[in-house]
């Protein structure tokens, strides 16, 4: 079969059965391909569904609300349905809602970003959850980045590598996998009830503290990994110049590890921004029609508002929920994009 000559130096007999081995390899390749396709398709279906529901075709009437003429969406069809079946939908609209105009209606719009939630879906907005989420995540990042980095530096650069350190290491790794609702219960006990004087109860601050607890294990693990990836030769070079441990860490280890630490922090933040359960547990509201006045004010966040809309019976609120998901996903993708850019820009080979 082979076009190459048989090797001369043969003491044993070989039956290499190359075609059978290659066939087996092909099977594994195709199984892996199928799994990849499954993953891509699931993601595609999610996006298809969400986008189709956030950007819709609608039968829109007009009505007067608080003395102003406002659109009143009486029925919606998904983006995709409208693309393939536009004439049919137009006919249906004319038949069922003679007053209504059939047109494209994007639920992600300026009103959506600037209005507070409302009982009229067309007027309802995402403003308070958007601001609430950004405040919670901002404070969480400010707290968890220095604490997580500090803990990682101590564990990697100062801590002795004994059994205590191994126990701590295992515990932190396990904490990263603790269900988030448990952090919510912890936050309720400590930050809402216990330290209510400091946080003011069910406030942005209590939420941010809870989210800090939630993100710390992830940040510590990521920061330790990237500190460990700094070659020992760099530390030795600095120490051999008569540097102290801190000078070595501050001037050489940290700058090299920082991109990895930042990436880990951003990824932890993008997990935190999507968390619902712990914030519901500590008592974040589901309906907030004002901007939080500060860190010690009550608040809501994007996933809670989305959940709230999904639970309402009217179909148009489900469109709002999809619009909320689009905004949340956009913020998540932006954050992850930043993490990728940081990693790309600072990639280093030693």
């Amino acid at each position: 079969m082979s076009s190459l000559p048989t090797p001369k130096n043969r003491e044993a007999i070989f039956t290499d059965r190359l075609s059978a081995r290659k066939r087996r390899g092909m099977i594994f390749r195709n199984v892996c391909l199928a799994m990849t396709i499954f993953g891509v398709l699931s993601l595609g279906a999610l996006l298809y569904d969400t986008i189709g529901s956030a950007f819709t075709w609608a039968a829109v009437e007009e009505r007067e609300v608080r003395g102003r003429v406002q659109p009143n969406v009486v029925q919606t069809w998904s983006l995709w349905e409208g693309i393939y079946n536009r004439d049919e939908l137009q006919r249906l609209t004319a038949e069922n809602y003679p007053e209504a105009e059939f047109r494209f209606f994007s639920w992600v719009n300026i009103n959506f970003l600037t209005n507070f939630p409302s009982r009229f879906p067309e007027l309802s907005g995402f403003r308070s959850p958007l601001i609430g989420s950004l405040m919670v995540i901002g404070i969480t990042a400010l707290l968890s980045f220095p604490i997580g980095t500090g803990a990682a530096i101590f564990l990697e650069e100062y801590g002795t590598k004994g059994w205590i350190s191994r126990i701590i290491e295992t515990n932190i790794a396990n904490l990263a996998g603790v269900p988030s609702i448990i952090y919510g219960l912890l936050g309720l006990t400590i930050f809402v009830r216990g330290a209510g004087g400091l946080t003011g109860g069910q406030t942005v601050l209590a939420g941010a503290f809870t989210m800090t607890l939630l993100s710390l294990p992830i940040i510590i693990v990521a920061a330790r990994e990237s500190i460990r990836a700094v070659p020992p030769s760099q530390r030795q070079a600095a120490l051999a110049l008569g540097a102290t441990r801190w000078e070595t860490t501050y001037s050489h280890v940290l700058p090299s590890a920082l991109p990895g630490i930042l990436t880990g922090t951003i990824l932890a933040m993008s997990r935190a921004i999507g968390e619902t359960a712990p914030l519901i547990t500590i008592g974040a509201l589901t309906y907030v029609a004002f901007d939080p006045s500060g860190a010690r004010d009550i608040f809501t966040v994007m996933p809670i508002q989305i959940f709230n809309w999904v639970t309402l019976p009217q179909a148009t609120f489900h469109n709002l929920a999809s619009a909320g998901i689009v905004v949340l996903l956009s913020i998540l993708l932006t954050m992850n994009g930043i993490a990728i850019v940081i990693r790309r820009k600072t990639e280093r080979t030693w």
């Binding site: 070659p231 030769s233 760099q234 030795q236 070079a237 051999a240 110049l241 050489h252 700058p255 090299s256």
Partner: peptide, 11 residues
Amino acid sequence: GMVFQKPNPFP
């Protein structure tokens, strides 16, 4: 002072 086997300049 010390000079190491593999050159290890700071980045």
